[in-house]
Design a protein around this nucleic acid. Structure first.
Length: 164
DNA sequence: ATACGGATACGG
DNA sequence: CGTATCCGTATT
């Protein structure tokens, strides 16, 4: 079912566009592969909930780099969350992967069940063990506010497949 | 509604 | 340095 690995130009576009287009694609790590069913967009410059909002730091520097790489961070002392770096080089946009078919819902659950860790920080998603592959275009997308944030709560930047 | 747990950002 | 906060999950 998964098709070709998505090229870098897929990621070098506006954050919301890439976030919506990631639904229905396949997140693949070694033998693991599942359809992406839930994502959240974190916008450049204007989004107070984005880690990049406070500027470039040791943790967030990958978000400011070229698109098509993984931004993985450790949170709440337990979980790793995986984001996809988007926008052109120098523009800090990213997309949080919150749900993958067959690997559970919730960003911490899916990274654990797919074996994604901090070692994947900065990994190139266009080649190697951790990649995203093309998939059939999904029929319908539901838009909602994002989960678990305290700032910019009102922005409708969470996208979910209707049939999941 | 709350315990859990560690990294991070920021103030002093 | 200390300390409030954080894109979560499992359990009451």
């Amino acid at each position: 079912m998964p098709g070709q690995v998505l090229p870098r130009r897929f990621y070098a576009r506006p954050t919301i566009e890439v976030a919506r287009d990631l639904l229905g694609k396949y997140l693949c790590h070694g033998p693991h592969a599942g359809r992406i069913v839930e994502v959240e967009a974190y916008l450049p410059h204007v989004d107070e909930a984005a880690h990049s909002f406070r500027g470039r730091t040791a943790r967030t520097k990958v978000i400011f780099g070229p698109p098509g790489h993984a931004y993985v961070y450790f949170i709440y002392g337990i979980h790793c969350c995986m984001n996809v770096v988007v926008e052109k080089d120098g523009v800090p946009g990213c997309v949080l992967i919150r749900g993958v078919d067959g690997f559970g819902d919730g960003p911490g659950k899916l990274t654990r069940s797919m074996g994604i860790t901090l070692e994947h920080y900065g990994a190139d998603l266009t080649r190697g063990a951790l990649v995203i592959r093309d998939g059939p275009k999904p029929p319908h997308i539901v838009t909602t506010p994002r989960i678990g944030i305290r700032r910019s709560v009102e922005l409708p930047l969470r996208f979910v497949l209707a049939d999941s």
